[in-house]
Design a protein around this nucleic acid. Sequence first.
DNA 1: CCAATAGTTAGACGATTGTAAAACTGTTGT
DNA 2: ACAACAGTTTTACAATCGTCTAACTATTGG
Lengths: 101, 101
Amino acid sequence: MTTSRSSGDILQPEQFELIAKALSDPRRVALLEAIASERSCACSNLRGQFPVSKATISHHIKELVRAGLVRAQRQGQYLHCDVRKDVLEAYTKALLRRVGR
Amino acid sequence: MTTSRSSGDILQPEQFELIAKALSDPRRVALLEAIASERSCACSNLRGQFPVSKATISHHIKELVRAGLVRAQRQGQYLHCDVRKDVLEAYTKALLRRVGR
DNA sequence: CCAATAGTTAGACGATTGTAAAACTGTTGT
DNA sequence: ACAACAGTTTTACAATCGTCTAACTATTGG
């Protein structure tokens, strides 16, 4: 698996790009939202909420993990996911710092 | 100020998607950054800063305008651009509201 | 009026992307 | 052990995207 930096850090340019790219697909943002709405969400839950195959969900989650927006840990046959809100906040801050004030 | 919106406004889902998509290309974010760094930026300035053709710059600016992230007004032969920071802030807030909090 | 400049539009092309089907690995319950 | 379940990987394909060249419009200066 790829690196997932610890919280509070300043985003590296590479991760900034990965996050922006990950957020560019509406379905992936909807997935993020669904993951965030539950506490420790299993992929099988997500499958019932979106009209996409399990392969597609697996792919999206992999991208979200790669961007550092989601943490996923195996527990038995289930994959439990949760959103790293600190990373998301770091992204918005970096974005505003780069473009805004 | 010239905008009628304040930073607390809620983005329509369509604009949310357009913004996320616009921010997904690193070059476009770099363009945004360059536009923001000057007071009122003409496209011809941008051309010197990036190794892309004028057609590509025109295309990117069109996308940024379409997303609402940039305001562009013609003044003679020049196109003056500036970043709508309120829209950018609205995006980050909407993102955090949807996923984080 | 002419030439130079600023930006737009159209068309094409290679690269990337979202998606699904199918085959696979790993886990749980009976 | 076996069947059902959860998720991954591979492969393939249509759609989208970033980029360029070339041709176009529109504006400015001599």
